[in-house]
C-alpha cells in the first residue's frame, strides 16, 4: 500500500483531516513529527494547514527550519511528491521549494468560503486525475493567502505552465494573476491555499450540483498521487 506522510508542526490544525483524506483515497496515512528528522520510508509527504509555530515572524518561516524539513527538502529535490496546503504551501515557499511568497490578504481579514478553482496543469504528481481546465470546488480559509512574486517570476511560471490552480469567480485574497496554486519545475512539489482534505467525503464537503455538502473534488488530489506512485512502483 502507498504510504503518505503528514507532518505535524506545533500549531498545525488539519493533520487529522489530511490523514483521514489519505485513508479515504486508499493509501496509508503516516503521522510525521516536526522534531523527528526521519520520514519513516513514506512514498509522499503532505504539509497540512494551520498556524505552525503560531506563524510568528512570517507564516511558515520557523517551520521551514524544523528537523523534519531537511528530509522533506532533500527528498523533494529527488522527486518525492510533496503537497503543501495553506500553511504547508507557505512552508514550501519559505523553503524555496516553490517560488513566490504569501502575504496578508489584500482585504486584511480572515476568509473562509467554498472556492471555485480551475485546474490549469494536470501533469503534476497531485493533479493527474483531473481534466485540463476542469472547475472544482475546494474550501478555502486563510489570513495570509495573497500569493506574490516578481513580474519576471510570474511570467516564467505562466510560460512553463507551473500555475496549477487559478481562482475562479472571485479572487479571495488578491493573489497575483488569480494564482491559487503552483508547482516546481519537476511537477512533484505542489502548493495551494485551498484545502482539498476538507472535500473528500459526502456529508462533510462543500455544496455541489449533487446537493448540499456533497463535494468531494479534494479526493482526487490524493487518488492522483496514489495512481502516479503505483505506476512508478510497477515500472521499478
Amino acid at each position: 500500500m502507498i504510504r503518505i506522510g503528514v507532518v505535524t508542526f506545533p500549531g498545525t490544525l488539519d493533520d487529522r483531516d489530511a490523514l483521514r483524506a489519505i485513508r479515504l483515497a486508499g493509501a496509508e496515512g503516516v503521522a510525521l513529527w516536526h522534531g523527528d528528522p526521519s520520514l519513516h520510508g513514506v512514498d509522499a509527504v503532505m504539509l497540512p494547514g494551520g498556524f505552525s509555530y503560531g506563524d510568528y515572524l512570517r507564516a511558515g518561516a520557523i517551520a521551514r527550519f524544523a528537523p523534519v524539513m531537511a528530509a522533506v527538502i532533500d527528498q523533494a529535490k529527488v522527486g518525492m511528491p510533496v503537497l503543501g496546503v495553506c500553511n504547508g504551501f507557505q512552508v514550501l515557499t519559505e523553503s524555496h521549494l516553490l517560488p513566490g511568497a504569501m502575504i496578508k490578504n489584500n482585504h486584511r481579514t480572515f476568509i473562509c468560503r467554498e472556492q471555485q478553482l480551475s485546474v490549469e496543469n494536470t501533469a503534476t504528481a497531485w493533479t493527474g486525475a483531473f481534466k485540463p481546465g476542469e472547475r472544482i470546488t475546494i474550501p478555502l480559509k486563510n489570513q495570509d493567502g495573497q500569493f506574490v512574486a516578481s513580474e519576471r517570476t510570474l511570467d516564467q511560471l505562466e510560460a512553463e505552465g507551473r500555475v496549477v490552480f487559478r481562482y475562479q469567480g472571485w479572487n479571495p485574497n488578491g493573489s497575483r494573476r488569480d494564482i491559487a496554486g503552483v508547482t516546481n519545475e519537476a511537477g512533484n512539489v505542489v502548493g495551494l491555499m485551498p484545502h482539498p482534505e476538507h472535500a473528500v467525503e459526502k456529508g462533510f464537503g462543500p455544496d455541489s450540483e449533487a446537493g448540499p455538502r456533497t463535494g468531494i473534488d479534494g479526493l482526487r488530489f490524493f487518488t492522483s498521487v496514489i495512481a502516479q506512485l503505483t505506476k512508478e512502483g510497477a515500472l521499478k
Binding site: 502575504i103 496578508k104 490578504n105 489584500n106 482585504h107 486584511r108 495573497q146 506574490v148 516578481s150 488578491g174
Partner: peptide
C-alpha cells in the same frame, strides 16, 4: 521592510 513593489496591507490599514 516589505519590498517597495509589494503591497503592504497593514500599512494601508
Amino acid at each position: 521592510m516589505l519590498k517597495p513593489e509589494i503591497l503592504d496591507p497593514q500599512g494601508k490599514a
